[in-house]
């Protein structure tokens, strides 16, 4: 079976076979990997992060903090209620606003506003924030995530589209300013 050169016909065919199968495998694997990475690699379409209205300014009385919900700009037909995202709107003094993401800056649980104590509190691990969103106590290492807002024709708009997470370098969630 073995030839003088040390490479048998059988060995050579096996190597050619493995090589050809490898090529076919790569041709099939590349589209599969690209498909899998689609949520990461697809370019952000227009409207990925866009200005969304939270409603009329009258809904948010001066000096108070109210819950609001908006429909996420990027939705698919099977999203159902999960595409309705909640956020906290603070009307500071009738002119300036703060809009906080519902997610705690620790691990993302929904914080709740307690007007009695003027604190946002998280039900999961006891994170607490002052009324301006800055960290009061507990495990979070920063204040609440805050949306950019603007006022147009008596309506409050925020720039939203992506769930804020502590690790992300997103440009729309600003670091909260320290408590004045």
């Amino acid at each position: 079976m073995s030839s003088t050169g040390g490479v048998t016909r059988r060995d050579l065919f096996m190597k050619i076979g493995i090589f050809c199968n490898g090529i076919v495998g790569v041709i099939l694997a590349v589209p599969v990997v690209r498909y899998l990475l689609s949520p990461v690699t697809r370019e952000r379409k227009v409207g990925y992060e866009s200005w969304i209205t939270l409603g009329n300014l009258e809904q948010f009385p001066s000096g108070e903090t109210r819950l609001a919900t908006y429909r996420n700009p990027v939705v698919s037909s099977s999203d159902g209620d999960t595409a309705d995202v909640a956020c906290w709107v603070r009307n500071v003094d009738g002119k300036a606003f703060q809009v906080f993401a519902i997610n705690c800056a620790h691990l993302g649980c929904p914080v709740r506003w307690f007007p009695q104590s003027s604190l946002f509190m998280c039900p999961c691990h006891g994170g607490a924030y002052y009324q301006d969103g800055s960290r009061a106590s507990g495990p979070p290492e920063r204040g609440l995530f805050e949306y950019d807002y603007r006022i147009e024709k008596g309506k409050l708009l925020i720039k939203a589209g992506e769930m804020p997470t502590p690790g992300q370098a997103s440009n729309f969630v600003r670091e909260i300013r320290s408590c004045v």
Binding site: P31, V32, R34, Y35, L37, S38, T41, R42, S76, S77, S78
Partner: peptide, 25 residues
């Protein structure tokens, strides 16, 4: 894919048009 009578077809539209190489797979 979403195995729901109301959403199966539209989830396949998403697959065809909004997912990289979804049409190919």
């Amino acid at each position: 894919y979403v195995p729901s009578a109301g959403e199966a077809w539209s989830s396949l539209q998403t697959l065809n048009h909004d997912v990289a190489l979804g049409w190919f797979i």
